[in-house]
């Protein structure tokens, strides 16, 4: 499986990433290269749409942990939206739902 990353700008301060496919050890580096620079731009909010992500492994989680750390460092914001249940479970188990801004309207099954 592949991952497609679509970058669009809602307005000047919000970058909207639409992901589709699987986030795993093969696709995570590309995602990291896209997302990390965005979290370093002052005043930016990065929104990530997970609606079409049907699988993510711990490597993918690592990307979002780095992104979160980077937002703290640079005073930017990260929001994760429209997660499917299987992906949400990963954030929940690892305790990240407590410290990340994750849209709670979880999408049904797989």
């Amino acid at each position: 499986m592949n991952l497609t990353i679509d970058v669009s700008h809602k307005d000047n301060n919000v970058t909207y990433l639409t992901l589709a496919g699987e986030v795993d050890a093969f696709t995570a580096p590309k995602l990291k290269d896209t997302i990390l620079p965005l979290t370093k731009e002052e005043g930016q909010t990065v929104e990530v749409d997970f609606e079409q992500v049907n699988y993510m492994d711990s490597t993918g989680l690592g990307v979002f942990i780095s992104a979160l750390k980077s937002t703290k460092e640079h005073g930017t914001e990260l929001r994760l939206l429209h997660m499917q249940e299987r992906v949400y479970r990963l954030f929940k188990i690892t305790g990240l739902t407590e410290i990340m801004n994750i849209d709670s309207t979880v999408q049904g099954g797989m």
Binding site: I65, L68, K69, T94, G95, L96, I99
Partner: peptide, 9 residues
Amino acid sequence: VPGLVLGVS
């Protein structure tokens, strides 16, 4: 059991 992964904070 709730608990955050090691190494985040």
